[in-house]
Structures are given as C-alpha cells and as structure tokens.
Write a protein that binds this DNA or RNA. Sequence first.
DNA 1: GTTAGCACTCAACGTGTTCGAGTGCTAATT
DNA 2: AATTAGCACTCGAACACGTTGAGTGCTAAC
Lengths: 347, 347
Amino acid sequence: MDLTERKLKILQAVIADFVRTAEPVGSRTISKNYSLGSPATIRNEMSDLEEMGFLTHPHTSSGRVPSEKAYRLYVNEMMKKRELSQAEKDAIASELYQNVTELDSLIERAAHVLSEITSLTAFALSPGKEQDTLRYINLLPVDDYSVVLMLVSDSGKVSNTVVRLKAPASEDTLRILAKNMTYNYSGKTLSEALKIDIIENFRTDAAAMSMFEQSIAPSFIRTLEDMLNVNLYMDGLTNIFALPEYNDIEKARTFFEMIGRKAEITQKLISRGDGIEITIGGENQDADLSDCSVITATYHVDGRLVGKLGVIGPTRMKYDEVTSVVEYLTDNISKAFMLTEGDDDDR
Amino acid sequence: MDLTERKLKILQAVIADFVRTAEPVGSRTISKNYSLGSPATIRNEMSDLEEMGFLTHPHTSSGRVPSEKAYRLYVNEMMKKRELSQAEKDAIASELYQNVTELDSLIERAAHVLSEITSLTAFALSPGKEQDTLRYINLLPVDDYSVVLMLVSDSGKVSNTVVRLKAPASEDTLRILAKNMTYNYSGKTLSEALKIDIIENFRTDAAAMSMFEQSIAPSFIRTLEDMLNVNLYMDGLTNIFALPEYNDIEKARTFFEMIGRKAEITQKLISRGDGIEITIGGENQDADLSDCSVITATYHVDGRLVGKLGVIGPTRMKYDEVTSVVEYLTDNISKAFMLTEGDDDDR
DNA sequence: GTTAGCACTCAACGTGTTCGAGTGCTAATT
DNA sequence: AATTAGCACTCGAACACGTTGAGTGCTAAC
C-alpha cells in the first residue's frame, strides 16, 4: 500500500489534532476541519493507515491515535522548522544575557527558560571538562596550618580548597611545592592529571614531599574530580501535572522517580548523539521512558566545552516548536557566554 | 468536661492507629487492641473527645480522625523521645562521616539521610554567612588580561572568580590593589563588606583605581553576594507518592508546586525559631501547608554558622520518631564537620 | 473512487442496590 | 453512676445495569 498525498495529509491532521487535544481523533473531526473528503472516506484512509502501522485504535469504537512510527515519520519528513516568536526570543534573551559568574549558572537558566517556553520538563548538562587543561596551580598560605590550593583551568574554571596541614609550612616549602606541581601538571587535561602517579614523579625535599603526600595530594585529587564533575540541572518538573497523560498518579510517580535518578540521566544524556537528537517512545531504551519523547541538542562554548540540553515530554509533543527552541537555545549559549565573559560586562 | 486518664489513652490510641493506617479509627478497633472498655464505652468517650475538639468525623458513619488540636496535645504532652536504632545511627554516620570538601555537601547529605530514614520530604539549609568574616583577599595574575580574585572567609569558605581586565595589569598594580583591599575589607563580615562604599574609601594610584572600579569591583560584589547566599537542599520528594493522602493528583500537584518555590521556603525556614520547632497543619500560615506538618531544627557549626534542617509531611506523622532523628542529625552535623575539617582526614 | 446509510461497539455516565463498617441512642446490667 | 449490649440508622464503596454518544466497519448507491 502506498502513502498517498491524501494519506499523508490525514496523518498529519490526526497528529496535529491529537497533539493538541490528547483525545483520539475521529473521522468526523478531520472531515470537518480539513477538506479532505467525507467522514467515510477519511475512515477508509485511516483504516489503511492503521494497517500500515501509523495509527492505532484504543478500542473498536474510538478515534485514532498516532503511533510512534507516525511521530517518527512526522519528525523525519513532515515537520517544518518554526520561527520563534519575538516573545520567546525576548524570554530567552532576558534569561541568558545576564551577568553570570559561572558558565554553570548560565546553563541552569537555559534549562529554566526552556521549560517555561515548552511547558515541559527541561534539563541541561554543564559542559564536560575532560578536555579542559590545567593552566595555573598555586598554594597560598592563609595561616600557619592552612593553605589554599588553587587551580585554574583553561576554560576559566577556578577551584580551590582550604587544606589543613599537619605541620606548619614555610612559604619556601609552599613555593617549591607549587612550582613542582606546576611543572608536573600544568598543560595536562584534568583527566590526564588524575592518571599521573603523583608520588612517583615527584622529587623534592623530604619535608615538602611528606606534606604533599599527606595533606595536599588528597585534596588535589578530590578537587580535580570535582572539577571534572558534570552537573545536571532540571526545571519545570511540575509541568507534567498539566498533561492529561499524567493524571494517573502511578504515571506521575514513575516519572518523578525516573527524574530523580540523576546519575543515570546524566549518563544517558552524555551518550546521546551530537546535534539535535529526537527519540520517541520505545526508541528510548528505558522502560520508564517508553511513553515519553526526548529531544536533546548539543551546545558548544569556546569550541572545546561541550554540553547537552533538552526536554522530556509525552510522545504527544509539539516536536516542531520544541526542536526550534532547543536549537535556538544551544546556538545562543555560547554567544551569551562570550558576552558575559568578555569585556563589556555592563550591558 | 475533663480530659480523664482514659480519654487520654483513647486519644493516644486513635492517634497511633490513624498515624499507622491513615484510615479513620472505629470504636471496635480501639476496644479490641487496647483494653480500654467495650466499643460502646469507647464510643461515648470518643463522642466527648469530639465535643472537646480533639477528634473529628469525616461523615456520620465513619471512625474518628485526630484533629490538629489532638496532634498538638500529643506533641506537647504525650510524646516520648525515641532512641534511634543502631541501623539508623549507622545510616546517619555513613552519610555524614565521609570526606567532604565543603560544608554544603555535608548539609546536602544530611537532607538525604533524613528523607531516607523518615520516608518524608526533607530539606536542609546551608548555614547563613552573615557573621562570616573575610580573612584573606588576593589578586593573582593568570595571564595578561585575566586575574583571579580570591576570597577566603573565616569559616574556610573559599571563593574566587576569574576577572577579565580591560587593560593588562602589572604585578605591582595588582599587589597594591590586593593590599588596599585587604586593608579595607579583611576582618569585616561579608554583609559589612557589601555595605562599604568602596570607591570612597579607596585611594591609590589612578591606574589601579580605574582597574578596580571598572573590572574588579563588580566581580567582587557579585562574589560577596554569592558567598552570602544560602542554599536549600531537598530530598525525598517522591516519598509523598507512598502516602495515601497524596493519591489525589491535585494534592500531589500543589505539593510539588509549593516545594518548587525555593526562595519562599528558604525565607520561611530562616524565620522559624531556634531549636526544634514543630508546626502542625494550619499552624503553618501557608494555605498549601494547611494539611502538612513541618518539623525543623537548628544546627550549629563552629559556634558561628547556623542553619536549619527538617522535614515536611502529612499531619499524620510519626512525630516522636521524626523529632528524634532531626534532633540527632543536628547534634551530629557540627561533630561531623569538625572531623572532616580537622586533621585526621583519613578515617 | 467517493459517499450515504446503518448496524454495531464500547467507554463514560448515571442510577439503583447491596454490603459493611461505623455511629448514636436506649435500656439493661454491674 | 458507669458500663455495656442491642438495635436502628447512616453513609461510602463496590457492583450491576441501562442509556448515551462518539466512533467504527461494511455495504450499497452515486
């Protein structure tokens, strides 16, 4: 059987209606709102579409519902990109173009505005720092027994920890240590740095060495790990209560439980493809996601830092709108960051 | 009418039963499980208790439900402190006594374990830093156009930002600036520091001055504000789905919406009294909390840093258990922090 | 190939009935 | 005077049943 022009139009109509109303769509409705023929004709076509796997039937006497295959066809072939409205652009701009000290908080805002605009649950992953390199390492005495270990990475990320010492350290010792650490570590990526067998590569006077081993090394490692950590931000969780598909308390519950497993979600997001990726229903492996669709996109900052953001919602989703927003957002994140990081701080 | 011994016992029995089952308690049940007389007797007593405002009646032919007044009486007069089980103590210990670089992450864990043990929604507020004083201020050149502004406060909190400069700065200029800032700010509390009219109190050479004004001051202020910020951590949000009172989707929705207003919650928490505070149902002013009870306690770290933690749950709550856990946790937070901050990092 | 017509299906809704847990009241018992 | 047994009564929950209406599938006419 062939997907004729009219069949396509009917399918599109069914999808549009169902996305809007969440109710199975009957032949009469289509016939009334689109001039595609009489109810009976539509019915015949729908019956064909069902045979082909694009529509389903909750029960004999109810209207049609698009299948995952239908959404997939729609996304691949029929969907047109949507221009964002001015209001949407404004909302995004006012959320992104603010002074931000950290890239992370920009990402958090991105998730916020994304959930606001789409009325879905949004998430954003702060950039992975694997490729980030150590640029500056220093040890600064604060008082006799405490030292600040400061690390600056190429991406401008700064991290530091107060390290408590077991014995007071002379400024000289600290300088030697800092120099030595700089020699061993600077220019290395964070993940490389973690792999170095520190004690081995580390020859200096005994006092400095023992201090390093006992006090500084553990903090150093912890700090590196911390800098590597990716953060997952989510927003708009309660938006799902507005969706009829989550009127069932059990559905809502599993949704929130799934959303709560942040580590798992982070992993899944990371392993998704670059650019815009749309997965529909069962295409998401996870059973808890089997009646959700996920749209993600990759953002780049500065050519090196890469992260993801996206939304999760019911398979019945405005794919065109959401895709456009997600795309627009990723395009603008790096721009926004350049602006706040750059010179003209005072916009 | 008098609250006789028996009336008290019956009331306690009703509370115990209702807390356990969430079902209205009938006279037969009480009569069977406690030897307090025949069903008829119990009924008469219950009728009295209802007249006194301790019990209510969902409808004529159903059992009794404790009123807020009853819970209040229970909490004030009848409740006994509960010893924590070894398992609970272990859970708390394993969550708290881990290496933590930041107090904040300890607080976050406290919220986690609290929600685990109580099966309720837990929250914890990181300590307020109003009394925290600046101890160390420095400006460190990273490259020609960027400088790290580093602040260390008395509580060991370190914060810093990469500041982009409009013009390259000599090391000398930076040293002068840092010295000047140290002179003006160190020893001041964070909130005092924010109030100082910086430019006014700041006399140095023109180049340094202009750099300060244009590049460093804004970052400095932002960083101070950031250090003052209190974080709210929550955990166990999905626990409410296990509660029959939240089988209603509308209830669940308002709960999550309320939980989402973090700024508001933070304010409410801060303004609660010191020590253990229990508010029951309508005692919480907020309408969204009118059938919840909130138990909070204050923790102290180091004598100066003060924060809150607690749980929120249905008025039907195991007040004795929860109170004990909350109390135990606050008692142990400062101890845990001392341990990780202190010398013996390697437990 | 399209459409009108019609029998058929099935969820949703309202109504009526039953069942049982629980009460309140009265009268008997202790 | 306090307690208890007994009984009529209430009301929600569960179930059965009929009705309604939106929608289908099929057939025959256009």
